[in-house]
Design a protein around this nucleic acid. Sequence first.
RNA 1: GCGCGUGUAGCUCAGCUGGAUAGAGCGUCGGCUUGCGGAGCCGAAGGUCGUAGGUUCAAAUCCUGCCACGCGUACCA
Length: 550
Amino acid sequence: MQEISSALKQAAKSVYETDIEPEISRPEAKFGDFSSNIALKLAAQLKKPPREIAQALANALSQNPNLAKVELAGPGFINFWLTDKVLAESAQAATRPAQALAGQEILVEFGDPNPFKEMHIGHLYSYIVGDAIARLLESAGASVRRLSYHGDVGLHVAKTIWALKQASGAAEFQLADGLAADTMIGNYYAKGAEAYEQSPSAKDEITKINHLIYSGQDPDIKNIYEQGRELSFKAFDNILKLLDISNDRRYLESQTAEVGKEMVQKNIGPVFEESDGAVIYPGEKAGLHTRVFITSQGLPTYEAKDLGLTSLKDKDYPGARRSLIITASEQSEYFKVMLAALAEINRSLAEKTTHLAHGFLSLSTGKMSSRTGNVYSATNLLAKVKERVYAQYPDSAQKDEIYLGAVKYGLLRHHLGSDIVYDVEESVAVEGNSGPYLQYAHARACSILAKASELPAEPAAIESYEPPERLLARKISEFPEVVAGATAELAPNQICNYLYELAQSFNKFYETSRIIGDPRAGLRLKLVESYSQVLAGGLKLLGISAPERM
RNA sequence: GCGCGUGUAGCUCAGCUGGAUAGAGCGUCGGCUUGCGGAGCCGAAGGUCGUAGGUUCAAAUCCUGCCACGCGUACCA
């Protein structure tokens, strides 16, 4: 691809004395392996018919030994066919990802559930998509630091602690294990939140607890708080371990408050303004919202704290080239304001920081009500899918890989910005575009390879492909480009699309091409091998396992 | 009101840095199996790409207006 591009560039230069960066694309199979619209682009500039230009450029490339055929088509496209030999080589090499980000340190913040509350499905989505993006960056050679940020202060904490005090204190936490710990915390929060709404006396007590948490004066509260926070994080760890998602460092809101407040106060005048006793950033001057950074009571808001967080990250990772923050899209506007303020304080830090918004996740059945904290929890969703998969695969040793793959793929296959309506049945359906479908596709290929390995090796020296073989080889060879594109655009769903198409290509090939025992077994086995490696590699980028049987 | 996002087949979604006849899954209808895992393959029906304009050789894709839905809009996070 690179080679065709530079050859075209050369040709344009020598024939027409013009500099242009040719666009090469992957057209439908009938239009060749690669295609360029360069002649159409040049037509206006050179004031010549596009087909004439295309013909001249095609002639210049027709002698290239790696190309089997160069043709004109349509209004002036140039279509290229690789020789089967070159195609075979590129399919073989497809499993090696390009190291475009080698040596770069990149920070990725995602997940961000709050302790003293249950992790809900929005956090689950954020974790899964953030992890996939981190994996993409890692595959390109980057050193990724997975970070998260947690609201460990505030009214929600007081509500949970109030409910804990009503029960027997944090001691009960000790009893819960695995995913149950998270559910238990959620239950306490729900009790506290309900009491806060329903009972004036409870509301007073909760407000009082909130102050005591800040002051740290009451040893009993302090004890419950510290234990509760630790156990909350343990509960999150249990979920993350299950999901095979790692987390390098947690930042806490209680750490960022002072740093952020200081940053704001130092910049009152040049950046921030005082208004009605509060300190604000006048975002309206730049078409953004004006937001409060320090309240009239002198407390830093989330805005100020997040400013502090960027500074903490910068101190901890001074060499980081980029810093991504992944959250739900409801925070998009807010982040623009925060980053605009940051740009005025520390331009280079703001420039390397990017906010990435994902859509809202809901379930095709069941509504969420966020009023009482009765949101749909991550553990509920996982349990539901697990139950469904366990019923379908009672004897499989891969039950857990299957249900986790179903959840991850079901979320990741969507475009990042759009809202998702998650359908449990669809996500576990084995026929259709699902995680289990791809896992099955992989297991089937592995089973062929396992059988073949028991037989004597077949020679692979066949010079040319039959059509179904060629289509599969072509699809396999696209993998590195797809990964590069998905990484550049931070779009894991492009990997999903590709893998699904890849599996379809394989199934078509498989339908017509006998492998074991066929005279072409050697060549075909090589294809199956590359295919299963690429499929497994692609699934790995999504954080999905590729079982050899299921 | 203003800002951001979304609007593509009955349903769920790809495609959006302009390119060839707008794709897939589910669902519907029809076909394929004395064989490597049929969880598959082949075919049919199904589309004013929200809408009206504009730019262009070429628009689902870019620009503008309008409509619908979601989110945000100063002391919550």
